[in-house]
């Protein structure tokens, strides 16, 4: 069992457990914290997959900005204890659990059936700088300059939309 396997189970298991925490904790604040933890574990996995820039982005943007926004809103609304929901299952939810399990099985079998076993592994050699800031940055400003620019417009729309929807008065 190599180091990679250990890290995989560490990060992957951590991600799953903390996501479970998101799902199961009664207090939304705890959910949010669990989600942040899960983001950190995933960042570890990204780093293992040579996606260094994305690992950093994950921590900076996701954990650092988006989740902070979540926590702000949680604190702003401050609904305290009343939101402690009782776990209760109705038929619809049981069906969704079953469907979820079925989907999971489908995806597992699809994932394992993807190309034959001998070629399942990654290519041993990687181009130098793969997944680094320079490589991704170069790609973003050449091949992918159009989506990059669109992301700018998208964020503007996000801001305007958020202001329109959440502002208290016209």
């Amino acid at each position: 069992m190599g180091a990679e396997t250990i890290f995989f189970f560490l990060f992957g298991g951590g991600a799953i457990l903390s996501t479970l925490g998101v799902l199961l904790s009664r207090n939304p604040i705890n959910s949010a914290i669990s989600l942040v933890v899960s983001f950190f574990f995933l960042a570890g996995i990204y780093a293992m997959l040579s996606a260094h820039l994305n690992a950093i982005m994950q921590i900076m943007v996701y954990a650092g900005a988006i989740m902070v926004l979540f926590v702000f809103v949680l604190m702003l609304l401050n609904f305290g204890d009343e939101e402690h929901e009782k776990p209760r299952l109705n038929p619809t939810q049981i069906i969704s659990l079953l469907v979820g399990a079925a989907l999971l099985i489908a995806m597992f079998s699809a994932a394992t059936a993807f190309v034959d076993g001998s070629r399942q592994v990654f290519h041993p050699s990687m181009p130098p700088g793969f997944g680094g800031v320079e490589a991704i940055g170069h790609a973003l400003l050449t091949s992918y300059v159009l989506p990059f620019e669109m992301a700018a417009v998208l964020l503007l729309v996000g801001i305007v939309g958020a202001v329109v929807v959440a502002k208290r008065r016209f």
Partner: peptide, 21 residues
């Protein structure tokens, strides 16, 4: 990886709108 970059940007915008809602 570029796609992931974009998804993060979209997630940020969605978070803004969603929380506002």
């Amino acid at each position: 990886q570029v796609f992931v970059f974009m998804v993060i940007a979209v997630a940020a915008a969605e978070a803004g709108i969603g929380l506002a809602m």
